[in-house]
Amino acid sequence: MKKIALALLAALILTLGLGLNAQAEEFQVAVAANFTKPAEKIAQAFEKKTGHKAILSFGSTGNFYSQIKQEAPFAAFLAADSATPQKLENEKLIKPGSRFTYAKGALALWSKTTGYVDDKGEVLKKNQFKKLAVADPKLAPYGKAAHEALAKLGLEKAVEAKIVTGNNITQTFQFAESGNAELAFIAWSQVCQDGQLTSGSVWNVPADLYSPILQDMVILKPGENSAAVQAFADYVKSDPEARKIILSFGYELSE
């Protein structure tokens, strides 16, 4: 009886040990909320390929910055801009040399109504709409890009009184989605699936009208010495599968 118990115990310890020795690693990744969908797909594909599991947290880039400064357990960070990762780099809170641009955002002028927005953006010049939703240029890179585009088109003064300001691009999108604003400057990724417009009408704002919306990724202190985290960053940066996913959600790649 005693022998059996001992054997069982040994078997238990062995299986536990094997479990612990398995190659698969788990780590936490902070992801800018606007990159939720592609990040989920990328994490799935990465797990399938390597067995490592990236556990994703979603939030605003600004919140994550505060949290990382308070030693949040995130091993890596996919931000919605390049300014925040740069700031973290300057403050020596990242793995040296780990910062790179993983995606470039594309600005779009969108309406819920089919046929309302033409593919030249003439709807802005005609100026017959009542409200134009734009994200806060101080808080959201897409808001800054939208104001740059309006300035380049010489329309900033003309539409000024009609602008309603959203906190972020999700709120800006909701202003237009709910029909409270006929038009909104949003991220192309919000209304794009597999490279196609999902609903309404859109003008893909030409890239020369605004400075590039760069989204940077960094490896943070908790992930500094992990090969799995490095593999994840490499995967996001250069694996054809990851790049295909990023493109399919309406982002561009940096090169």
Binding site: Q28, A33, S57, Q67, A72, P73, Q190
Partner: peptide, 26 residues
């Protein structure tokens, strides 16, 4: 709780954060 919790699945991602993730996701 979003600020203090960091929205970590199974640890701090409560119901209100789960709704937030869905909305951000469209």
């Amino acid at each position: 709780v979003l600020m203090i919790g960091g929205n970590i699945p199974k640890v701090t991602r409560v119901l209100s954060m789960q709704i937030y993730v869905y909305v951000e996701n469209g």
